[in-house]
């Protein structure tokens, strides 16, 4: 065989010498050049267009941060940071105004904790079922339905919590107030399930079949394979799904505004009513406070706190993704 191998260089010389094209007339050359130039301009244009599209999102984010920081600055000139962080009351409407963000934060944390206590276990179980157990047909039907659940407007969930779940919970626990963090949190959890389940399922399905086969070949059952091989291999994707769920819970507004009441209340007890950072912003935006007052400036300080909170979770998610990125 080796005798037949022709050096690639020699074939190239051969082909060029044999098929040398006739020297093209100058008009043709400039024609071709113009075509090339126009293609170049077109590509540059498209590139610029894409760059602008990308720039819009960056610019929007930067503008939001700029406005939040600028307006919060006015707030923090009037209210020292220590009072903002450590005061135990939130009463911007009163003559004796207090601006303790902890009060709103406690509502956000409590309702999110309830929501995640529902969404993370259920979402994970659903993801395991869909990815590792469900027959093809079941998955093809169940997944779109699940994702539909994520498309229900949150205001609908809010009223569902207020007029259906709260009365139901009051039958079990009569002292429960009409507005409470518990039913808002539970319904919020149901709202978040599709996000957690869908993303976790994607992460688990991306685990190569070779790993599953390796596990089965060692005599593992389906459940053992799912829990001991597939889930650890999908850790980073599952962690991102959880972080997205947390961000959704922290940022959720309507369900809480409708079903949790808007009474600022420093509590970690879900059976009480309470305001969250988001529902407070709604309240102010609805016009309860005069424009330009310090009370009005509070929504920017509250918004900045919310932004920092979600940023923290995003960074945590980024770190977890890197830390647990599995090589397979």
């Amino acid at each position: 065989m080796s005798g037949l191998i022709v050096h690639p260089f020699s074939t190239r010389i051969m082909s060029t010498t044999v098929t040398v094209p006739p020297v093209p007339p100058t008009a043709n050359v400039s024609d071709r050049l113009r075509k090339k130039a126009s293609r170049h301009i077109k590509e540059r244009f498209i590139e610029a267009l894409l760059f602008c599209a990308a720039l819009i999102s960056v610019f929007t984010t930067a503008a939001i941060v700029y406005i939040l920081v600028k307006e919060s600055w006015i707030f923090f000139e009037a209210v020292p940071l220590s009072r903002f962080l450590f005061d135990t009351q939130w009463t911007p409407l009163f003559d004796d105004a207090h601006y303790g963000i902890m009060v709103l934060l406690s509502g956000t944390i409590t309702s999110s904790a309830v929501a995640l206590a529902v969404a993370i276990p259920l979402g994970t179980i659903i993801a395991i079922y869909l990815s590792e157990f469900a027959p093809f047909k079941v998955r093809e039907i169940a997944k779109p339905f699940l994702e539909l659940l994520g498309g229900v407007p949150t205001i609908v969930y809010g009223y569902f919590a207020l007029v259906f779940l709260t009365p139901l919970l009051q039958k079990i626990y009569p002292e429960l107030p009409g507005f409470n963090l518990l039913s808002a949190g539970l319904i919020m959890g149901v709202m978040i399930i599709p996000y957690v389940a869908s993303l976790s399922e994607d992460a688990m399905r991306a685990v190569p079949m070779a790993l599953r086969e390796g596990s089965y070949a060692m005599g593992a059952t389906r459940l053992q394979t799912a829990l001991r091989v597939v889930m650890p291999a999908a850790t980073s994707g599952i962690a991102s799904a959880y972080i997205l769920g947390i961000s959704r819970a922290v940022g959720e507004t309507m369900i809480l505004a409708v079903a949790a009441g808007m009474q600022p209340n420093l509590t970690f007890n879900p059976t009480e009513s309470g305001a969250t950072i988001t529902s407070y912003i709604v309240q102010v935006a609805l016009g309860d406070l005069p424009h330009g007052s310090i009370g009005y400036q509070t929504i920017f300080a509250a918004g900045l706190s919310l932004l920092l909170l979600t940023l923290m979770f995003n960074l945590l998610g980024h770190y977890l993704r890197k830390r647990f990125r599995e090589v397979y």
Partner: peptide, 14 residues
């Protein structure tokens, strides 16, 4: 459990 297997591409678990 009685018949084990080694695959074409090494597939260690994570």
């Amino acid at each position: 459990m009685r018949i084990s297997m080694v695959f074409q591409k090494p597939n260690p678990f994570p």
